[in-house]
């Protein structure tokens, strides 16, 4: 066999190895989702969603955790979206060449790499203790807002960057001020990209566990939180709590709660992907 034949065999061997690796990743995902669905789907009924946590796994439900997750999602959105978009606009359209902007840019890329649990320590001290919020929804949402801020800022910038400069120049030529250009031209034109980034960031916040455990979110909540100053639990913490227990019944509960959590994150990711594709197709400048 000459070397070119050997090379061709090697080439084909790698092709199949590549397919095998790709399949490995997807197979893991499939096994993993299949396992959770088999274990947890039977346990999901209306009572599971509307019951409070209980020492008896058959009677335990996720109501306080589910409501807590919705609260956290809403409050985090209210805090993080305006701040993230504003900061993104500033970096992309206003501060571009200033020293402040360079500093901000390095800083944001650094923040994106800080482990989420460190944000928990920040929230515990700053929001929980110094600002006196304790382990409330507000403290949790503030902590998560800081965590997802870099994601929203970066995606807002990307979306603004994708708007062709001709639109901006035309707006300026018509005598529009900078803010008028941003508000009436750039933001509407980049809307799809901005929304996609926001949804992805919020879906990340919904799945976060560690920072909320650190700021003191509760594992056992026998009430439905009714205001931002109430203490709370969220779905991931409820899942963590159930996984940590030895009884089989709680492992099943954990799988059922995971199905609900995954439904929430997958729906959010699905919407984001759909918007991104639609936006990319529609916008051909």
């Amino acid at each position: 066999m000459n070397s070119s034949k050997i090379n061709r065999i090697k080439d084909n061997a790698f092709k199949y190895f590549g397919i095998a690796c790709t399949v490995f990743g997807l197979a893991m995902l499939a096994i993993f989702l299949g396992n959770i669905i088999i274990e947890g789907i039977a346990r999901i009924d209306w009572a599971f969603i509307t019951n409070f946590p209980s020492r008896n796994p058959d009677k335990a439900g996720i109501l306080p955790a589910l409501v807590g997750t919705l609260w956290i999602m809403g409050l985090t959105a209210v805090i993080a979206i305006p701040l993230g978009i504003a900061a993104g606009i500033y970096l992309e359209e206003y501060g571009k060449k200033s020293k402040l902007a360079t500093l901000l840019e390095i800083n944001i890329s650094n923040l994106a790499g800080v482990p989420s649990i460190i944000y928990g320590l920040l929230g515990l001290e700053i929001f929980g203790r110094i600002m006196g919020m304790g382990g409330s929804l507000l403290a949790g949402a503030s902590t998560l807002s800081l965590l997802i801020l870099p994601i929203i800022i970066v995606s807002t910038r990307e979306a603004l960057k994708a708007v062709p400069s001709s639109i901006k120049e035309a707006s300026f030529a018509m005598g529009a001020s900078k803010w008028q250009t941003v508000w009436h031209q750039l933001l509407p034109a980049s809307f799809g990209g901005v929304i996609t980034g926001i949804i992805l960031a919020l879906s990340r916040a919904v799945g976060e566990t560690a920072p909320l455990i650190v700021i003191g979110a509760l594992a056992y909540v026998p009430f439905v939180p009714a205001s931002p100053t109430d203490e709370f639990s969220v779905l991931p913490i409820q899942i963590f709590n159930w996984i940590s227990r030895p009884q089989k019944g709680f492992a099943i509960n954990a799988a059922s709660a995971i199905i609900i959590l995954l439904m929430v994150t997958f729906i959010m990711n699905g919407i984001a992907m759909y918007l991104r594709n639609r936006w990319q197709k529609k916008v051909k400048w």
Partner: peptide, 30 residues
């Protein structure tokens, strides 16, 4: 309108500065 533009710019910049405060906060707390 000049003043309005300036106010908006400062507002946007202060949103961005929150990220710097976050870093300072993390380092200070730790």
């Amino acid at each position: 309108p000049r003043i309005k533009e300036k106010v908006i710019e400062v507002g946007l910049a202060s949103a961005a500065v929150i990220t710097i405060l976050t870093t300072i906060g993390i380092i200070w707390v730790l």
